[in-house]
Nucleic acid binder design. Structure first.
Length: 597
RNA sequence: GCUGGCGUAGCUCAGUGGAAGAGCAACUGCCUUGUAAGCAGUGGGUCGGGGGUUCAAGUCCUCCCGCCAGCGCCA
């Protein structure tokens, strides 16, 4: 989104073909007002570009020293002055050579560079007060319309996004049409911080990071429960769909990676180590090792499709600055699978994978978006193969009734793919699942064959697919999606038994033992603390159910049930609690239903 | 990797050159507890690591590590 905005911003044509929606026009104008304020405070800075982006805007400046937090405050003040002065935005047009001379005289080398790179004969400039900028508009009528904004952050950014170019200083801000919308947006940003999976991971004791292994999570017992439940879910679904599970080595000799092409194309991201004068690498992908399983036996056309799944532990040497909690790590586990099939089976196999994707994501109330990436300029394989593979992907999406976006030229060099993204509750976009057709890489480089009905060896097609993507990223996203309040089947602790006082500890223990015997993840909190205190702790840990037991409950063999939503259900029998739990968990239900049956 | 910011108790954070602190958590005791914090006491620190400046360094300088934001990267 941001990239596309920037791209369009740079393609000045002098026409009003920017996104002319009121909000994006306002944000664009706000970025000009900010640039004006920056120029007033720091006359030596050079202007680069300043587009509207999703939720706001930015402007890049060439400046020796970075902007400080104090600077942002001063800039905001001057922006307020400029807004109050209500300068009109005035459009002016120039011939391109004239504009180049104009900006050269004003000492704006980036504007000159932009102008030299475009082919429009005439360009437009916009002026408000003493500030004038190359821009195709449109803008709000005057700076007085710029009222509800806030500067959020500053950071380095490369000119034209290329790390070989000089680094500029970027200021991000947000702007809205009303005070209410601005406040709401700022509130949302605060909420996002609260449900950040890194914060929740620590608070809920799910996982930890340590500088002895950057980018590799330590799964704590509670987090590991979630990993195991997701693995169980994946295995159940795959078993039901005719997958068989394999496990291949993590440490693999260089010669395999040379054969697969990774050594040539991916070695910067591979951890290598030398063992008895041989070079090895930790696998960054599962596909090359999986071919050994395919080739273990001579395959008949009757054996296909062969669906080999693997919970593959991968290592990728991501650059240090890229690591982010669980969502960008150096070590992760993929719920990977490789489906080897005949060309005539491709369609059905992809359709089946997409069904699986739908089933999985529905369970979590996640709404994925589907992007079909087609043949890139540099592609291996014949156009006929590509057409067939792309057609199969289109058809599979349609068969599943899925809306999708086409990303022309975005496919891998070895085949087209569908990338599956989800937006979390805060509107951020993550790539999760992937379905990739592989026409050449595995089949050709590893010379995979099956014996067809006519007795002749043929090349199978391979499908690489992952449904969660990686358990790490998925759990990171899921934690934020649920804000830590996992549904019961995933909750590390599903219930806590809270005896009112010491007098009821024994009955509490009985209830606890019965639930434990029913294989629930239950804890007994009979600490010498007030009930309110222990309720509060269970709430903070987002335990779905609290089972309070006192005199009345002991007498009747019941519990008083409190849901973490705050709902209370009195006098529920232990039998019913267990029955409801069992049903809710085995259905992987999204909502709390115990005591409501 | 680049630019900037940050790193003090398990957690959240105060401490701008002169005796390492607070709240929560933990532990102990009192209270015997009815749906989101009862009271009191106790223990807890290589101030991320190395080197340097200084009579004196959590504080200043320097190198390294990690984290955060953005950029870039992302088969």
């Amino acid at each position: 989104m941001a990239e596309a905005e920037e791209e369009r911003h740079l393609k000045l044509t002098g026409e009003f073909d920017c996104d002319p929606s009121p909000l994006s026009t306002l944000r664009h104008s706000t970025s000009h007002v900010m640039a004006q304020a920056v120029k007033r405070l720091f006359p030596d800075v050079k202007l680069a570009i300043g587009p509207a982006i999703e939720d706001g805007f930015y402007y890049d400046f060439a400046k020796a020293e970075p902007f400080s937090a104090d600077d942002l405050g001063r800039i905001e003040e001057v922006m307020g002055e400029i807004a109050r002065a209500d300068h009109p935005f005035e459009r002016r047009e120039m011939d391109r050579p004239q504009a180049i001379r104009f900006f050269r005289e004003r000492g704006e080398p980036f504007k000159v560079e932009i102008l030299e790179a475009i082919d429009a004969p005439r360009v437009s400039l916009y002026q408000q007060g003493e500030f004038i900028d190359l821009c195709r508009g449109p803008h709000v009528p005057s700076t007085g319309h710029v009222r509800f904004f806030k500067l959020l952050a500053s950071s380095g950014a490369y000119w034209r996004g290329d790390e070989r170019n000089p680094m500029l200083q970027r200021i991000y801000g947000t702007a809205w049409l009303t005070r209410e919308e601005l406040d709401k947006h700022l509130w949302r940003l605060e909420e996002a911080k609260k449900r950040d999976h890194r914060k929740l991971g620590r608070e809920l004791d799910l996982f930890a990071f340590h500088d002895v292994s950057p980018g590799a999570p330590f799964w704590l017992p509670h987090g590991m429960v979630i990993v195991r439940e997701l693995e169980r879910f994946a295995r159940e679904a795959q078993d039901a769909r005719g997958y068989t599970e394999i496990s291949t080595p993590i440490l693999v000799n260089k010669k395999l990676w040379e054969q697969s092409g990774h050594w040539e194309h991916y070695s910067d991201n591979m951890f290598r180590l030398e063992v008895e004068e041989q070079l090895f690498s930790l696998k960054p992908m599962n596909c090359p090792p999986s071919t050994f399983v395919y080739r273990h036996a001579l395959r008949s056309y009757r054996d296909l499709p062969l669906r080999l799944s693997e919970m593959g532990r991968l290592h990728r040497n991501e650059r240090s600055g890229t690591l982010t909690g669980l969502v960008r790590v150096r070590q992760f586990t993929q719920d990977d699978a490789h489906i080897y099939c005949r060309p005539d089976q491709l369609q059905d196999e992809i359709t089946g994978v997409l069904e699986l994707v739908r089933e999985f994501y529905k369970t979590f109330n996640l709404e994925p978006s589907f992007r079909l990436a087609t043949r890139p300029p540099k592609a291996m394989g014949s156009p006929e193969q590509w057409d067939a593979a792309e057609r199969a992907l289109h058809e599979a999406l349609k068969a599943n009734g899925l809306a999708y976006e086409v990303k022309p030229g975005d496919g891998a060099f070895y085949g087209p793919k569908i990338d599956i993204h989800i937006e979390d509750a805060l509107g951020r976009d993550w790539q999760m699942a992937t379905v990739q057709v592989d026409l050449v890489m595995l089949p050709e480089r590893f010379q995979l064959e099956y014996i067809d009905a006519d007795g002749q060896p043929k090349r199978p097609v391979a499908i690489h697919r992952a449904i969660f993507g990686s358990f790490e990223r998925f759990i990171g996203v899921l934690t934020e999606h649920y804000a830590g309040a996992f549904p019961t089947w995933l909750a590390p602790v599903q219930a806590r038994v809270l005896p009112i006082s010491e007098k009821h500890a024994e009955y509490g223990r009985t209830v606890y033992e019965r639930l434990r015997a029913a294989r629930l993840r239950v804890e007994l909190d009979d600490r010498n603390e007030k009930l309110g205190y222990r309720i509060r702790e269970a709430q903070l840990k987002k335990v779905p159910y609290m089972l309070v037991v006192g005199e009345r409950e002991r007498a009747s063999g019941t519990v008083s049930l409190r849901h973490r939503t705050g709902d209370e259900l009195k006098d529920v029998s232990v039998e019913r609690v267990i029955a409801d739990f069992t049903r809710e968990i085995s259905a992987r239900a999204p909502d709390l239903t115990v005591g409501r049956s």
